[in-house]
Simulated scan of single mutants.
Amino acid sequence: MMDAKSKERHVHEVFERIAPKYDLMNDIISFRRHKAWRRFTMRKMDIQPGQSSLDLCCGTCDWTIALAKESKGGRTVGLDFSRNMLEIGQAKVDKLGYSNQIELVQGNAMELPFEDNSFDFVTIGFGLRNIPDIVKTLKEMKRVVKPGGKIVCLDMSKPTWQPFKSIYYFYFERVMPLFGKWFVKSYEQYRWLPESLASFPDLQALAELFRETGMRNVKAYPFFGGVAALHMGTKGNEIV
């Protein structure tokens, strides 16, 4: 098993490499369901005009742009450690006319360059399982969200019932890396995704980490038999 520094370096190399085909592969490997999961998440978030958001591991910025659109002018920041991902995201932001509202930052989700109590929402989409220290990241998300604000994680998860569990793991571990090889010539990079899920907490364990970090009213919603999940928690009114 890789240590934290090795994992951080490896993940960075993976995402720098797959950035140009990242959106295409997301559609292929999730059968486009990731977009429906994000729409469900946005409904649960219930963003109001003028509210601010920080989108961690923002990648090519699809969720960042959706947050900006929903907030109707609210401050929106996207953070990612991959320069290649951010360049693709910036092109989208510019094309859609959100450059005055959305700020993109290259940075580390475990050491956020923002003041305490800065955002109404802090989100992370399909990125938490790639970060070496999940608890440290959750604490940072809680630190920078405002009292009463929401911490939101949308990510892959682990089905628990058979035979679907076996079918899913066969697809995730054997078939999906082949898709990477066939469609984007990145077999080794897409082998990382099942590896990243192996040590990632399941639905209930991640919900418990939210609670242990001090979040309140924690809710977890599984998708499609548990292949993905939404976790949401609220920061209390204490001042960090």
Rank of each mutant, 00 (worst) to 15 (best):
K7P: 09
E8W: 04
A19N: 03
P20K: 10
K21Q: 06
N26M: 07
R33A: 06
H34D: 04
K44L: 06
Q48R: 14
P49N: 15
S52G: 14
S52R: 15
C57N: 07
C58I: 01
C58M: 05
T60H: 12
D62G: 09
W63F: 06
V77Q: 04
V77P: 00
L79K: 10
F81M: 13
S82W: 14
D94N: 15
K95Y: 09
L96E: 03
Y98L: 06
Y98R: 06
N100W: 14
E103T: 03
Q106V: 02
Q106D: 01
N108Q: 13
A109M: 13
F114K: 10
E115H: 12
E115C: 10
S118T: 11
V122D: 07
T123I: 12
G125K: 09
L128F: 00
P132N: 04
P132T: 05
L138A: 02
K139R: 11
K139G: 02
E140S: 08
M141T: 02
V144W: 09
P147Y: 02
D155Y: 04
S157T: 09
W161Q: 08
P163Y: 12
F164M: 14
Y171T: 11
E173R: 15
M176D: 08
F179P: 12
G180K: 04
W182A: 11
W182V: 07
K185Q: 15
K185H: 15
Y187V: 03
Q189Y: 08
Q189T: 05
Q189K: 14
Y190P: 02
Y190N: 05
S196D: 04
A198D: 09
P201V: 02
D202E: 03
Q204L: 13
A205F: 03
L206S: 00
E208D: 05
F210S: 01
F210T: 02
T213A: 03
G214K: 05
N217A: 10
A220R: 05
F223E: 00
G226W: 03
A229N: 06
L230P: 07
H231T: 02
H231A: 00
K235Q: 12
E238C: 06
E238S: 12
I239Q: 10
V240E: 03
